[in-house]
Amino acid sequence: RKWEEIAERLREEFNINPEEAREAVEKAGGNEEEARRIVKKRL
């Protein structure tokens, strides 16, 4: 699934746990840019 690939990239890029990465992607509706913004806000 594409969402899992996005979550994996976010996890590696921001050094967050898989659960946090998945939550961000879900919140963003699968949009990678939006997920990235969500993760950055949390850091």
Rank of each mutant, 00 (worst) to 15 (best):
P18G: 11
E19N: 10
E8W: 10
E23S: 12
E5P: 04
E34T: 08
E12V: 15
R1M: 12
N31H: 08
N31I: 09
A21Y: 02
E26A: 13
K2D: 11
A28Q: 02
E19H: 09
G30M: 03
A28N: 02
A7C: 15
G30R: 02
W3V: 05
E23R: 10
G29W: 09
R37Q: 10
N15S: 12
F14P: 00
G30S: 02
I16C: 04
V25K: 00
I16F: 02
K41A: 12
R36M: 06
A35Q: 00
L43V: 06
E23M: 11
L43M: 09
I16T: 03
I38N: 05
I6P: 01
R42S: 15
E33R: 09
A21P: 00
N31S: 09
V25A: 04
A21C: 04
K40D: 08
I6T: 04
E32D: 03
L43T: 05
E34K: 09
E20V: 10
R37W: 05
E8L: 15
E8V: 11
R11S: 09
E34P: 01
E20S: 06
A24F: 05
V25P: 00
E20D: 11
K2F: 12
E34Y: 07
V39Y: 03
E5Q: 11
L10R: 00
A21W: 02
R37M: 10
R37E: 13
E23N: 11
G29D: 13
G29A: 13
N31T: 03
A28I: 00
I6G: 01
E8H: 09
L10K: 00
V25D: 00
E12F: 15
A28Y: 01
N15M: 09
E12D: 11
N31V: 09
E8C: 13
R9G: 05
F14L: 04
R42V: 13
N17S: 14
E19R: 08
A35E: 00
K2W: 13
F14Y: 09
V25N: 01
E19S: 10
A35M: 01
K40P: 02
G29I: 08
E8N: 14
V25F: 03
A7K: 03
W3P: 05
R1L: 12
W3G: 04
P18A: 13
N15W: 07
K2G: 13
R9Q: 06
R11V: 13
R36I: 08
E33I: 09
A7G: 03
I38E: 05
R1F: 12
P18W: 14
I16Y: 02
R1W: 08
E19C: 07
E32R: 04
R9P: 01
R37F: 04
E5K: 08
E32A: 08
K40T: 11
N15H: 13
K2Q: 12
E32M: 10
E23Q: 12
W3A: 06
G30K: 02
R1P: 11
V39W: 02
E12A: 15
E33K: 08
E26R: 13
A21Q: 00
A28S: 09
E26S: 11
A35K: 00
E13A: 07
V39R: 02
E5G: 05
I16E: 01
E23K: 10
R1E: 12
R11W: 11
W3S: 04
R1G: 11
E13H: 05
I38H: 06
R36W: 05
I38L: 14
N17Q: 11
P18D: 11
K40R: 15
R22T: 08
E34F: 07
V39N: 01
A24T: 05
E13F: 06
L10D: 00
R9M: 08
K41H: 13
E33W: 14
E20I: 12
E20G: 04
L10I: 10
L43S: 05
E26I: 12
R11M: 12
A35S: 04
E19P: 04
I16D: 00
W3N: 06
E8G: 09
E8K: 14
E4I: 08
G29L: 12
N31Y: 06
N17L: 12
E20F: 14
E26H: 12
R22E: 07
A35D: 00
R22D: 05
E32I: 12
N15V: 04
K40L: 15
E8Y: 09
K27N: 10
A7D: 02
G30P: 01
E4A: 14
I16K: 01
V39F: 03
F14R: 01
P18V: 13
R9L: 08
N17H: 10
E4M: 09
R9W: 04
E26K: 11
